[in-house]
């Protein structure tokens, strides 16, 4: 295990570790601790800080902070998109791995493309596709005679949410696909052969052998999906505000703020329509607590399940 047991130079591991630790202390941990202090103050970044104790945290429970509304919105997006992403990613990975499919590498790349494209571009792209007047979707619907006039996709809460869910599924299933492909490559081949010899059908083998063996991958995807999902910002922001980013206060969070995510809320509170640094920091801490709760429950659920 160790190449240093016999050696006297005890400082060597610390030397290899120190760049990481120093950078983390200076630009990771310090801002996190200092942010907590800021969250206990009322501050606009220019004038003096006033210590206000837990007032900012109390304000999170006030509907005017939009904190729980934004958490609810974000959670809704995660709940509606993650299962579909997992199912689609799993199906595609299984098909690609089955060797029934030609041009495997090409299809693998194509379906991964949406994930690697700059989120800002994704938001703008869908903004243009679903534009009321110039959008591709409305033009096609009109041409086919399915609607009499263009649908106001980004102006109605329900439609706006539908577009976001579609956009997130489009963007995310390539990510799950890649991890399932990696997981499938680690499933021992002889298990499948044994099942086939015993006369199990392809589907049966998949559900009783492959799927359980992929469980660690699924858990990884669910946890990173929740953490990543709660940090959602650019896609809805650019989708709903378009390229004239933030220029109009009316569109923050979309119609009736139905698509305001938690990080968007934090950005808008500290750097957008208001410059309340203290409240912004409190929103960030609130978000962290919520992510921690979900990760903890997720991990518990996983552990309880496997015993």
């Amino acid at each position: 295990m160790s190449i240093m047991n016999a050696a006297k130079k005890r400082w060597v591991p610390y030397a290899f570790l120190s760049p990481y630790l120093l950078f983390y202390l200076a630009f990771g941990l310090f801002p996190i601790v200092f942010s907590f202090y800021v969250s206990l103050t009322s501050w606009d970044g220019i004038g003096d800080k006033t210590f206000v104790g837990l007032d900012n945290y109390k304000f999170l429970f006030n509907p005017d902070s939009y904190f729980f509304k934004s958490v609810g919105n974000t959670l809704l997006f995660v709940v509606l998109t993650l299962p579909v992403q997992i199912a689609l990613g799993l199906v595609i990975a299984t098909l690609l791995y089955s060797r029934w499919v030609k041009w495997r590498g090409l299809f693998q790349l194509i379906n991964f493309l949406p994930y690697i494209v700059t989120p800002v571009a994704v938001g703008l792209m869908f903004n243009l596709l679903f534009d009321w007047q110039a959008g591709f979707v409305n033009k096609v619907l009109l041409k086919l005679g399915l609607v009499d006039e263009g649908i106001y996709w980004l102006g109605e809460p329900l439609y706006a949410r539908m577009v976001i869910v579609l956009m997130l599924i489009w963007k995310g299933f390539g990510y799950t696909m890649v991890f399932y492909l990696a997981g499938l490559a680690n499933v021992p081949k002889d298990l499948h052969e044994a099942a086939q010899v015993d006369g199990a059908s392809g589907l049966r083998t998949f559900f009783s052998i492959t799927l359980p063996l992929l469980k660690p991958v699924t858990v990884f995807i669910v946890i990173t999906g929740i953490i990543g999902g709660f940090q959602l910002l650019e896609e809805p922001m650019l989708l709903l505000t378009g390229s004239g980013m933030g220029s109009s206060v009316a569109v923050i969070g979309g119609p009736e703020r139905c698509c305001l995510t938690t990080v968007w809320n934090m950005y808008d509170t500290a750097y957008g329509s208001t410059t309340r640094y203290g409240l912004g920091a409190a929103i960030a801490y609130g978000l962290c607590v919520i992510i921690a709760v979900f990760s903890f429950v997720g991990a518990r659920f996983y552990r309880g399940d496997s015993e």
Binding site: F27, I227, I291
Partner: peptide, 17 residues
Amino acid sequence: LTMMIPGQLGIVAYVIE
């Protein structure tokens, strides 16, 4: 543990730093 912490947690203070 730090892997689980969202990057936005310290952002307000990081900008000031």
